[in-house]
Structure formats: structure tokens, C-alpha cells
Design a protein around this nucleic acid. Structure first.
Length: 313
DNA sequence: CGCGTTTGACCTGCGC
DNA sequence: GCGCAGGTCAAACGCG
């Protein structure tokens, strides 16, 4: 089992711009893994933390983070909210930090991201599939200073679940994605993903049509996959095309991005049950990869290039 | 019918 | 107050 546990967890300062990578830091307020732990475990966690049981907690939480491929880069951070400037804000802050209970009041627009607890992972494209939660995409925005848009996902497993996830491609490394988790799941991990509904059909651009992100606007064409959730498990083809087109159109700044490299002995996913270990091959059957290959082929023929597709294997 | 993505519009926080 | 940027909403539409 990989032995990184809290090692990759860092604490950010009060602003999202201060995310640090690679520091060994155990936060003193809270800690969570949005990916892979059971409700009962993280329910008890905050209480345990306050009792100074961080050693045991470290052991407990080792398997909670996504068990990813050998090449996965992971940088995790946790940001905490600023102290509320006004009394009024305090209430919302607490809503944002409720661990499990569904909030009685959910503001239409959440607090700024830098005031929410966040965990940042840097993942190889092929390791995005290690996230077993079911996510639904609810938005995409171009990000200033980045050639790639950021996609916004919310947990689709439970209506009251506040968990959010942002995915954007690293501008420094092709095929590496920065995944930011916000808030926590209010339910246990789903045993299976949902159906294929919503899997888009995207055709390749035939002209110079562009959306407001400056990326080609896609028509629809089928993505084949036997695993339902499109989320990040199967990045939508339009998203992939955006990525691909951006790769070809963009210059990559020479910017250092400190990372923690994870060495892992095997490609095993560890579930909530102690005995539940699933290999990558078990989790994704041949059709899944076949679907990716189809997409890749489409890229190659459409863009006249086959070297940069992040999901090629 | 339920669940998914896409995408323009809208809301909010923040800096000036 | 204004403009910008990030985050979210919701209508439209596709798929099984």
C-alpha cells in the first residue's frame, strides 16, 4: 500500500492562490478525503482529531485517497475559510463546513472558493478514473491565464450532497489534470455508477466555428463506453476535443509546479470494505478503453496528430 | 423518464 | 461604483 497518507496534504492559506504543493503538514482544523471513504469514518474523524489522535488517523486515512496509477502525480491541499469579516458571514461559513448533515439552508450561490475547504489533486489523465464517485458536470468556464477551461462537477449520487469537483488540465504538463474537491459527500460511496444517459455524441469540427472559450465548437458524435458516468471517468468528447485543440494551439509557460510523485506497488483500488480491492483492469473492462481508443482515432484523423492525446495507452 | 452534457446568462466577491 | 473573474443556474437537448 502506498505510504503517503497525510504526507501529501498541505494547508493552504486563506486564499486560493496560496495553495502549496508537497509540504508535509497535518492541518489542525479538519481533514478530509472526498474520494474514497465511508460516511461513518469521516463522521467520526473530526472528533478524533480534536482528541489528538492524528497518528491513528493517519493510518486510518491512508487508503482513503484515490489509489491511482503509478505515474500519477498528486498534490493535495486544504484551504480554509478566512475568519468571517462580519457576523453575518459566519452562518454561511458553517454551512460550507458541515461534514455530513444536509444543510437546512443552501444559499443559491456559495461562498467564494477560497473560503471553502478544498483539496487539490494533480492527476495523470489516465488516473482520473480512480474517482469512484458519480459526478455530474454543471458548468465550464475559461480560466484567465490558462489555455484550458475548467469544468465544474457536483456529486450526482445524492441530491443533498454538497460535494463539488473542478477539473482543469495543467498548463505545464500535457495529460496532467488538476482536480479540486470542495465540500464533502453527505452519503456513502456509491457501489456503481449510473447509466450511460447523457453520454454525448460529438462530431468533429468541420470549420472554424468557435465557442466563447476559443475552442472549436463540437457537433455530436457517440462515445462508446460501458461505464455510465461521463464525469471524469470518461471525459466528454467535447471536453477532450477542447483539450486537444488547446494543446495544439497553446504555448506552455515554463512554470514550475512542485509535485509529489507517488510510487505505488500495484494498480489497486481499495474500496470502503477492507476486502474490497479492485484492479484497474477489473474496474474498467475492454470496452472502456476501446471507447477511448475510438476517440483517440478520431483525434488523430481530425487533427492529423496522434501524439498528444492524454488518454492514449 | 431519468440522468447526462452543453452553454449562455446570471450572481457574487474582489480589486481598483 | 464599476469591471473582471470565478462559480452556478437552468434551458435545451441527447442517450439508454
Amino acid at each position: 500500500m502506498m505510504d503517503w497518507g497525510l504526507q501529501a496534504v498541505v494547508i493552504g492559506s486563506s486564499t486560493c492562490n496560496d495553495i502549496q504543493y508537497g509540504a508535509n503538514y497535518i492541518d489542525q482544523k479538519s481533514y478530509f478525503s472526498p474520494l474514497d471513504f465511508q460516511e461513518s469514518e469521516y463522521l467520526a474523524f473530526s472528533d478524533m482529531k480534536t482528541e489528538g489522535l492524528s497518528d491513528e488517523l493517519e493510518e486510518l486515512y491512508k487508503p482513503f485517497y484515490p489509489v491511482v496509477g503509478q505515474n500519477t502525480l498528486m498534490a493535495s491541499s486544504v484551504s480554509f475559510p478566512k475568519e468571517p469579516k462580519e457576523e453575518q458571514k459566519g452562518e454561511n461559513e458553517q454551512q460550507s463546513f458541515a461534514l455530513v448533515a444536509a444543510p437546512a439552508y443552501v444559499p443559491k450561490y456559495k461562498r467564494r472558493k477560497n473560503e471553502q475547504k478544498r483539496v487539490v489533486f494533480q492527476l495523470k489523465a489516465e488516473d482520473l478514473s480512480s474517482d469512484k464517485w458519480a459526478w455530474r458536470k454543471y458548468g465550464q468556464k475559461p480560466i484567465k491565464g490558462s489555455p484550458y477551461p475548467r469544468s465544474y462537477y457536483r456529486c450526482s449520487s445524492s441530491k443533498g450532497c454538497l460535494a463539488r469537483k473542478q477539473v482543469e488540465q495543467s498548463c505545464t504538463e500535457i495529460g496532467t489534470f488538476i482536480v479540486t474537491y470542495t465540500a464533502e459527500h453527505s452519503h456513502s460511496q456509491p457501489t456503481r455508477r449510473n447509466s450511460l444517459a447523457g453520454t454525448i455524441k460529438t462530431k468533429f469540427p468541420t470549420s472554424n466555428n468557435s465557442n466563447k472559450n476559443g475552442s472549436p465548437k463540437m457537433e455530436k458524435e457517440k462515445i462508446s463506453s460501458t461505464h455510465g458516468s461521463t464525469s471524469d471517468l470518461v471525459l466528454s468528447k467535447a471536453t477532450l476535443l477542447n483539450i486537444e485543440s488547446n494543446i495544439h494551439e497553446s504555448q506552455f509557460p515554463e512554470k514550475e509546479f512542485p509535485e509529489i510523485e507517488i510510487n505505488q506497488e500495484n494498480n489497486m483500488f481499495e474500496g470502503s470494505d477492507e476486502n474490497e480491492c479492485v484492479s484497474i483492469e477489473d474496474m474498467f473492462d475492454g470496452d472502456f478503453f476501446a471507447g477511448l481508443e475510438d476517440i483517440h482515432d478520431g483525434f488523430s484523423s481530425s487533427f492529423g496528430c496522434n501524439s498528444t492525446f492524454p488518454f492514449s495507452s
